[in-house]
Nucleic acid binder design. Structure first.
Lengths: 243, 243
DNA sequence: TCAATAGTGTCTGTCAGACAGTATCAG
DNA sequence: CTGATACTGTCTGACAGACACTATTGA
């Protein structure tokens, strides 16, 4: 769609299209998944890509990211964690002409199977290991990698892990998020001590949930803290398992 | 400069100018300083701003940042730490029309007084406390704040502090960087233990430098490590002193 | 009763904070 | 010698890793 003009201004500066692209992660069935769409139009027609689209006139970057999130997935962005990753602007990253993209990272609880939107023929939750070895359109593989790195890093020193859990949640569910994203097992006992002693990471609801088997687990909600101090230690030897 | 076209494409997507802006920090005379220019042209003529300029045709973002660094300061960017902060794109951030900017953070040792460049009437190393309470052009105050936050955070878990020191350096000089940027004193003894025990943060040259007064100090060079593990602890009570 | 998961208690090593004490220079 | 800064050593408390042990459910 839309031929992007690659207009030269007299002084050699560039006028370009600007897009937002979204790295949307969720945890489902013991794996971290990213939302990928099958492109319905050239370039890369039929190929896999991150959801995204052009920024509109009069629209801010965050605003554009929220709109694309709603359009391509039907998700209300206010329910998830959304933050900017960074801008990508290599001259040849889009064969249609000069295009800059601002990548966003979105984290949410196991989300509904998304609604195919404007540019999306179909959308799927793809396990990240699979996505990392897939051929993605444009420079989306690099963007995905940065998103993954950022998500992994942020689990350490912020409380975003809770963004992956539908509230209320058990500590086992929260721990599961860490284990899946870091690809390493955590000691349940030490995890509990850490999380419950950190100020305002989680707050107990006083209720509990009885699973099909085993002892009922206490339920918690997100606390008010954004930063986690001291951080959640990732085992010294930076072992990322498979990925 | 130059009138930026705010062309609407038929589908309402925007074509815009793209700039890079630089937050360049250095440590001098017991204060953290940022390079600000006095704008030579409208808008905000005569006002203070971060150095920066338009991205050119065929030029990548990092490349544009390096070029602007050289043009406006005469600094060879390969000598300093340069990383992207993030993109800013509020619709009304530039009165001339829709403009996106990609902010960069640059960290270097006490740098030469910069050469006034293309868009800069004059350039100064301004103490950050002063810059934070100044009226900066565009959204540059917000960009500066983010740069400062990022720099402070990165001292904790990376070895970038060494980027502020001309090599070779003493451990007192390196410690001074932390103290100035965090605005808190660090215990010299514990700092030494931490830095020398961390793998490849610094490596001893075997030489020493005799100051005007006091015992000579051993000299070190940057090590190969980028990440610092375990991190440099910032005292639990997040006290940022004045700033 | 057992299987399974939730949750508690405790030992140990590592490391940060505090600070006493020693070393090496210029005058 | 004094003053100043560089460097070493040591004690203590906080906390992570490991893991034994107890608690509460369904079948």
């Amino acid at each position: 769609m839309a031929v992007v003009n690659r207009a030269l201004k007299y002084d050699g500066t560039v006028s370009a299209a600007v897009t937002v692209d979204l790295v949307i992660f969720t945890v489902r069935e013991a794996s971290l998944r990213v939302l990928l769409i099958e492109r319905g139009k050239p370039p890369f027609e039929g190929g896999l890509a991150l959801p995204g689209g052009y920024v509109r006139v009069g629209e801010g970057l965050d605003q554009a990211a929220l709109r694309e999130l709603a359009e391509e997935t039907g998700i209300d962005g206010r329910e998830l964690h959304l933050e900017q990753l960074r801008a990508f602007g290599a001259p040849e990253r889009d064969p249609r002409g000069r295009t800059f993209t601002v990548a966003y990272l979105a984290l949410g609880p196991d989300l509904p199977t998304p609604v195919a939107g404007t540019d999306a023929a179909t959308a799927h939750w793809v396990p990240v290991e699979a996505a990392l070895s897939a051929e993605l359109a444009f420079d989306h593989l690099a963007i995905l990698k940065e998103g993954l790195d950022r998500a992994r890093a942020k689990l350490e020193y912020t409380t975003v892990a809770a963004a992956f859990c539908r509230q209320p949640f058990t500590l086992a569910e929260l721990r599961h998020v860490y284990e899946v994203i870091w690809g390493i097992p955590l000691d349940p006992s030490n995890f509990r001590r850490k999380v419950t002693k950190a100020a305002h990471f989680v707050e107990a609801t006083g209720e509990s949930r009885t699973p099909e088997i085993g002892r009922p687990a206490a339920l918690y909600r997100r606390g008010s803290a954004e930063l986690l101090f001291p951080p959640m230690p990732r085992s010294a030897d930076g072992d990322d398992a498979s990925v």
